[in-house]
Design a binder for these strands. Structure first.
Length: 639
RNA sequence: GCCCUUGUAGCUCAGCUGGUAGAGCAAUUGAUUUGUAAUCAAUAGGUCCGCGGUUCGAAUCCGUGCGGGGGCACCA
């Protein structure tokens, strides 16, 4: 006689055991039509699960995340079913739900093509139309293993073998012919999936995510509660493609890549202007925050990298250079050993701490070819790197200062939404556990004091210390990991850094590694995508174009342009023999923030007519006033 | 690095099943001197990614290398 408690606290009493579907019917007819799955005392169950005892039940529809998830999960199953019907001999492996959709990994010799995807989609649609029923069975472990081995599903058999002995093995049947080992829960029938899904891409994926294993074929799909949500999603993807920094970088003449140096950027004039503006801005901010800028060699003796521990852990990813006298040098993949050598120059006292050394250091890392991606993952990049040498009791306050600086800088660049990821000791590391305990505790304290939202990434720290990663959210809701802050009790000791403490004894300083943008290259990529190339005025690589209406006004246009440059704002005059409409179109497409039109009217009144990007209003302003206005626009909000 | 896919003019792309390449924009030249998103015309521009093979003949088919793209793995 179960009494069922609903989320609103209401109790429903039944005279005998009931299924979820019956509970939903009792609540309301419309709910029973929309119900997809339920939770029983917090545990997700199929709607045909029979409830015998008193419990709390919640029914989920496609409006709930749980409902959407089960739709995606069922779509993955139906896809696997369609694939095995169309391509006999294909083995199934796993098919989980992911953000925005699902995938399923298959083992099959022949590659799936895009035409195959269309065929599979069609077959899925047919299965959904047939509305095949779902049925759950519990199998004996041995029976399941032998069965899947017998029918040639060796991956499934392997999965079952790895499931703990005490766990129940459920097999879900979809219709009479197809079934899959699965934890569930699932929908009552295939028709409940709806048709708001689309198979999006095929790719390779290693069995169990390990590159030592064989490669499977993964088919990705996206799945939604209704057609509108699917269309919205597809539109979001399209919008993101329009913002692709590789496309915009080419269109806007910011940078390019060439075969001769894969993963290294050729910065063009405009891209480099942007790069320099960011660096100059950082110089101002860092100077105010007590940093001292230095510059250290790009090429350093291999012995130093051996001593620091980099050679052992990352040697395979380091560029090296052999000199004519057969010495091996490494091209720096990081700035830290160099900065410790800067610290080591001259005797340091506790009065020098905290000592904040910064460098816009260009580093080279031999990234695997498949990892390269525009500006976002490159083999040569510039870090806005700094190392703070301090005493143990300064760690937390220094970490908080770094966090404040990062937040201020992100805000200036238009990112208000920042979260932290705290990562602790990895398996492969240097230094003993006692030191790690100390480092982790001090960093975590700073994380907590920052009052920012944070998550913990177990075992993801650097090999020399725990770290925080700063993740910002862009204009279209994507997260990007940029800044980093790491506590390091190891490297300074390895490279013999010491300072003289109050009591006259030599001590090893703690070192904090931090980068704010991280990689300038990557950050510019993110900026391009965030702003879709329409940068805020103060970092825009070319801020103004002066357009004379005809040859008669060229001299005035030149005069205006040179006055603009005198107040520190970039400007060119467009003297090409094209008409005004043409020039407006060209420079608007190039995303120039301000176009200044000069004709008879402007010459007579010593003024300019302004056309702002994305506006077709005309705004006439006296040149003097304009120069003042535009100077005020030429800086971020914190300066 | 691995799987799939792709590489034609500065850019975007066309070129069916093999017969040594074409458009638009950009560039150059000339005409037009223009008031807020493409003025008109002419000219020039290509080792069809590299190397090898099949073939009477290869941008096209095959092999291989390099680069790009989508994932996987990696990311100090």
């Amino acid at each position: 006689m179960p009494i069922i408690t609903l989320p609103d606290g209401k109790n429903l009493e039944f005279s005998k055991e009931v299924t979820g579907l019956e509970v939903a019917k009792k609540i309301s007819k419309s709910l029973s039509k929309q119900a997809l799955i339920m939770s029983v005392d917090g545990e997700l169950k199929d709607l045909y699960f029979s409830i015998k005892q008193n419990c709390k039940v919640k029914i989920f529809t496609s409006k709930d995340p749980e409902g959407l998830e089960v739709i995606r999960h069922d779509t993955a199953h139906i896809m696997a079913m369609a694939v095995q019907e169309l391509y006999p001999g294909t083995q199934v492996t796993i098919g989980p739900v992911i953000e925005n959709g699902f995938y399923y990994d298959f083992a099959r010799k022949e590659p799936f093509t895009n035409e195959d995807l269309n065929k599979i989609e069609k077959r899925m649609s047919e299965i959904i139309d047939k509305d095949v029923k779902t049925r759950r069975e519990v199998w004996e472990r041995e029976k399941a293993i032998n069965h899947f081995k017998k029918i040639g599903e060796k991956y499934k058999a392997e999965i079952i073998e790895s499931i703990p002995e005490n766990e129940e093995l459920s097999i879900y049947h979809h219709g009479d012919t197809w079934y899959d080992l699965c934890r569930g829960p699932h929908l009552l029938s295939s028709g409940m999936i709806g048709k708001a899904f689309k198979l999006t891409k095929v790719s390779g994926a290693y069995w169990r995510g390990d590159s030592k294993n064989e490669m499977l074929q993964r088919i990705y799909g996206t799945g939604w509660a209704n057609q509108k949500d699917l269309n919205d999603y597809l539109n979001r993807i399209e919008e993101a493609e329009k913002r692709d920094h590789r496309k915009l970088g080419k269109e806007m003449n910011l940078f390019h890549f060439r075969e001769e140096s894969p993963g290294s950027v050729f910065w063009l004039e405009k891209g480099w202007a942007l790069f320099q503006k960011l660096i100059n801005y950082m110089r101002v901010k860092q100077d105010a925050a007590g940093y001292r800028e230095v510059n250290t060699p790009e090429v350093l003796d291999r012995l130093l990298w051996e001593k620091s521990g980099h050679w052992e852990k990352y040697g395979g990813n380091m560029y090296t250079s052999e000199t004519p006298d057969e010495k091996v040098f490494a091209i720096k993949p990081m700035n830290c050993p160099g900065h410790i050598q800067v610290f080591n120059q001259g005797l340091k006292s506790y009065r020098d701490l905290p000592l904040r050394i910064t460098e816009f250091g260009k580093v080279h890392r031999y990234e695997p070819s498949g990892a390269l991606h525009g500006l976002l993952r490159v083999r040569a990049f510039t870090q806005d790197d700094a190392h703070i040498f301090c005493s143990e009791d300064q760690i937390t306050s220094e970490c908080l200062k770094v966090t404040d600086l990062i937040l201020e800088i992100y805000k200036d660049l238009g990112f208000d939404n920042v979260i932290l990821k705290y990562a602790d000791r990895p398996e492969v590391r240097v230094g003993d556990d006692e030191i790690w305990d100390k480092a982790e505790a001090s960093l975590l304290e700073a994380v907590k004091e920052s009052k920012l939202e944070y998550s913990i990434n177990k075992g993801e720290g650097a090999f020399y210390g725990p770290k925080i990663e700063f993740v910002l959210r862009d204009a279209i809701g994507r997260d990007w990991q940029c800044g980093t802050l790491q506590v390091d009790f190891n490297l300074p000791g390895r490279l013999d850094a010491t300072y003289v403490d109050k009591d006259g004894a030599k001590k090893v300083p703690v070192m904090l590694h931090r980068a704010l943008f991280g990689s300038l290259e990557r950050f510019i990529g993110i900026l391009i995508e965030n702003y879709a190339g329409k940068f805020p005025f103060w970092i825009s690589p070319l801020q103004t174009v002066v357009i004379p209406i005809s040859e008669d006004f060229e001299d005035y246009a030149k005069e205006v342009s040179s006055k603009i440059k005198k107040v520190g704002i970039s400007s060119i005059v467009d003297l090409k023999k094209h008409n005004l409409n043409y020039k407006i179109r060209e420079h608007s497409l190039a995303k120039i923030p301000l176009l200044l039109i000069c004709g008879k009217k402007e010459v007579d009144t010593n003024s300019v007519t302004i056309r702002r990007l994305d506006s077709n209003k005309q705004e006439n302003m006296e040149l003097k006033t304009f120069l003042k206005t535009v100077s005020a626009m030429n800086k971020p909000s914190s300066i």
